[in-house]
Design a binder for these strands. Sequence first.
DNA 1: GATTTATTTCGTTAAATGGCGAAATATAGG
DNA 2: CCTATATTTCGCCATTTAACGAAATAAATC
Lengths: 128, 128
Amino acid sequence: MHKEVALFKALSDPTRLRLAVLLAIHGETCVCHLAAAVNEPDFKVSRHLGVLRSAGMVEVRRDGTWMYYQLAEPRNDLEGFLQDCFRDRLISHPKVREDLDCLESAAVAKPCKKIESLDIRFNKRGPS
Amino acid sequence: MHKEVALFKALSDPTRLRLAVLLAIHGETCVCHLAAAVNEPDFKVSRHLGVLRSAGMVEVRRDGTWMYYQLAEPRNDLEGFLQDCFRDRLISHPKVREDLDCLESAAVAKPCKKIESLDIRFNKRGPS
DNA sequence: GATTTATTTCGTTAAATGGCGAAATATAGG
DNA sequence: CCTATATTTCGCCATTTAACGAAATAAATC
């Protein structure tokens, strides 16, 4: 049951849980915006994302200087439900709503380049 | 989200996860049988059960010198699903099956008193 | 009082976390 | 091409937290 233990351990830190919930609700997001959302230094958020990645919970994609993280495809019922739960239930949690507001503000104040161009092309807000 | 973090932290140890799964499948069980099931010393199992209790995952009932633990009633969707998942999915996990075999052997070798009398009265195996 | 079961305490060891600075990676400008 | 800048990650160390083993303690029974 090493895999299940690793999954629970990855979610057993408040910052990591907040990051996982944000990714579940908001979708693909760059590190700097996540850092603004949870109000923690970049290097700390980066390290926590690394832990989530080691547990197989998130995937990362590079675009220029930015690294975009998103939840990985669920590998079993447990992971699938947790993602559903994060997206559908925890969205009403006060702390999550607060984080989402900070994320939105950060995305408006300093939109990442690639996303910005997407905004222009498709006339809608990008994933980050 | 302290409560969710505490829940995940409680399940982020291999021994505790095994104990939680055993309780989900087998129902109310005394400490000595749980210790035999996971093949760990009593004091260690007792401590881990204490952690699960602090997280609100399990309840305890005293009967003579025995302490009977069982999963607490789920307080939300997350806890409810996890219990369902433990009971219905992880039952096929090799380690869990092995633990269940050890639990069964221990219950037969040294049945607890109260349960033994229940066996006689109802002519079926008790919860432990 | 002795025995059984379970929990707690204490000291040690291992692991996780956080902060700071440096190093990688990529972009932009001259 | 070189430098400057922005974003992210890594290395190192200090601090905190968690887990373990052995013995001591508590609670109930015989």
